[in-house]
């Protein structure tokens, strides 16, 4: 197991280097140098070169990349061109919100998708119904679902605050009130796909020999369903959760924009709109490392429950 973990961690390093280099090269080559953007089109080439040098944007690409990585390693992501704020502290403020959002979404989907589709009573009806709903669920865009929720729950029924965000320090209730709709919106995708995968897996496992044995032993349908079929149908969900983290991040970007929440997604969107290099690069780096680490965790979780995949190659 230790060799397996070590191998996976080592494999991550080249991937992170390749991706961050691509990110850095693309962002800094295509968008023009920061000084050119800051000073506008009428600025003299000398002024642009001078400001670029001051911002640490001179020298060949590789040197600039290494300088950026070196600073990033010591936690220094520079200052935002738009607000002059330290990018590190912007990220420290935005990241917990996005992580919380994503965590709620995954946990809720992971608990409810298997549970709701396992009750023996009415199982056929519930499973079919959930499958149909899920088909709609995976195709509905986050921004539409979010606005729909706002319209129904906030505008018409006046149950929840429309948009915005309240930190935990404003009170647990206020915080959760602002979280309900964003989390529901973000959970939708995972819940729908989990349901589709779980139901098909459940149906396959249902006809296995050990289920027949359990049934002939006279176990109750509830026990068979929850103790025998559920644990054996849940494995693909772990793999899928790991594989589709990218979609979760994309979803979070949209959800944070719909509900105007100050998380990483909004940070990225506003940085792109303002051509704010240091913020774009830093958010990109965090997303790359985040996705890689979460992928690794999903792999490890899978290895933990299924020993046969613990091979190095």
């Amino acid at each position: 197991m230790l060799a397996f973990i070590g191998f996976r961690v080592l494999m991550m390093i080249p991937n992170v280097i390749i991706l961050t280099f691509l990110l850095f090269a693309c962002v800094t080559t295509f968008l023009g140098t920061p000084a050119a953007i800051m000073l506008g089109e009428e600025a003299s080439p000398e002024a642009v070169a001078e400001l670029n040098a001051r911002l640490g944007f001179d020298g060949p690409l590789l040197t600039r990349y290494l300088r950026w990585m070196e600073n990033a390693f010591s936690g220094d992501f520079g200052r935002s061109y738009a607000t002059q704020e330290s990018v590190g502290s912007m990220i420290v403020h935005a990241l917990p919100l996005t992580l919380e959002l994503a965590l709620w979404a995954i946990v809720i989907a992971f608990i409810f998708a298997p549970l709701m589709n396992s009750f023996p009573v009415l199982r056929r009806t519930v499973q079919s119904l959930n499958s149909v709903i899920s088909l709609v669920g995976i195709t509905i865009p986050n921004f539409f679902l979010g606005l729909l929720l706002i319209y129904v729950l906030s505008v018409e029924l006046r149950l929840l605050p429309t948009t915005g965000w309240a930190p935990w320090s404003d009170g647990v209730l206020a915080h959760l009130e602002h979280m309900v709709m964003p989390v529901l919106t973000l959970t939708n995708f995972y819940f729908s796909t989990f349901t589709l995968i779980y139901v098909s897996e459940y149906r396959a496992v249902q006809s296995s020999l050990f289920v027949q044995v359990a049934r002939s032993k006279g176990l109750s349908e509830t026990r068979i369903s929850f103790r025998h079929i559920l644990p054996n149908s849940i494995l693909p969900l772990i793999t899928y959760a790991g594989l589709s983290l990218g979609q979760l991040v994309g979803g979070a970007v949209v959800v944070e924009t719909v509900f105007s929440m100050p998380g990483m997604g909004r940070l990225l969107v506003s940085a792109i709109a303002a051509r704010d290099f240091p913020v774009m690069l830093a958010v990109g780096l965090v997303i790359i490392v985040g996705v890689m680490v979460m992928n690794l965790l999903a792999d490890l979780a899978y290895g933990l429950v299924n020993p046969t995949v613990r091979t190095v190659a």
Binding site: L19, C26, L243, G246, L248, V249
Partner: peptide, 22 residues
Amino acid sequence: QIIDLFVALPGLVLALIITAML
């Protein structure tokens, strides 16, 4: 390796950055 690397990345974010560039 390359395929898996890009499949894991958030497509929307990737598209966001590329569209911003182009």
